[in-house]
Design a protein around this nucleic acid. Structure first.
Lengths: 107, 107
DNA sequence: CTAATATGCAACCCGGAGGTTGCTTAATAT
DNA sequence: ATATTAAGCAACCTCCGGGTTGCATATTAG
């Protein structure tokens, strides 16, 4: 279980950036976007966006396929699901702790 | 909505570290821990642990109360819940995208 | 064939994150 | 009264993250 926790930190870290969060928001809603498309509207450089995409890719939130002269990025849900499980675990532990406290006070 | 997303990046970032994840895991399960207690078993210095706790505190995942000569840290669930909402949003968008793709293919 | 477009690669900058050590101060135990 | 124990503060170090610029390369448009 702590092994799983260890594996999740990088996913959280990858989500810990505004730019990457907005990339995820775009990619989870529609099909593949090219790097240029994802750069449109951003104040950042194409290279900066590329770096962010590689970070997301490194933890499996996204994957890329090179087609012709452009590389298309697509969302991948698994890591997000994993991380949600961890958060559910935390919430559950907390609820149980509250329950224990409550029954202790009532005695 | 993008304003909310902006506010969530720091929470994800705070969770994007193994040490802090394990601190959260401890704190969400039982009541207050002092800094010394949280340092027990860790290979890190008390000061390092303190810094991590301050990071968690800065995004509201945890709060501290000074009692006597020790300061006790306690878990706070709200930021985690907020972040879960964001992840649920992402999952939902993705599911909808899949649905649209499916009905497109079926036509 | 040539120009334009989409990326990749590498060097470089800067600031902050994660960690340590050393010293000080406050509270409690003896 | 004194020794311990719990923390806070500050300086310092190293390394990586986020960004940029510049140049090279591969596709595709005309």
């Amino acid at each position: 279980m702590p092994a799983k926790r260890r594996a999740r930190a990088p996913v959280f870290a990858a989500l810990g950036d505004e730019t990457r969060l907005s990339l995820v928001a775009k990619l989870c809603g529609r099909r593949p976007y090219s790097i240029s498309q994802l750069t449109q509207g951003s104040k950042l450089t194409r290279q900066a966006i590329t770096k962010h995409l590689r970070v997301l890719e490194s933890v499996g939130i996204v994957h890329s396929v090179r087609t012709g002269r452009e590389s298309l990025f697509e969302f991948d849900p698994q890591p997000i699901e994993g991380v949600k499980q961890y958060l559910d675990f935390v919430s559950e532990q907390w609820d149980q702790a509250l329950s224990r406290l409550k029954s202790f006070v009532e005695d």
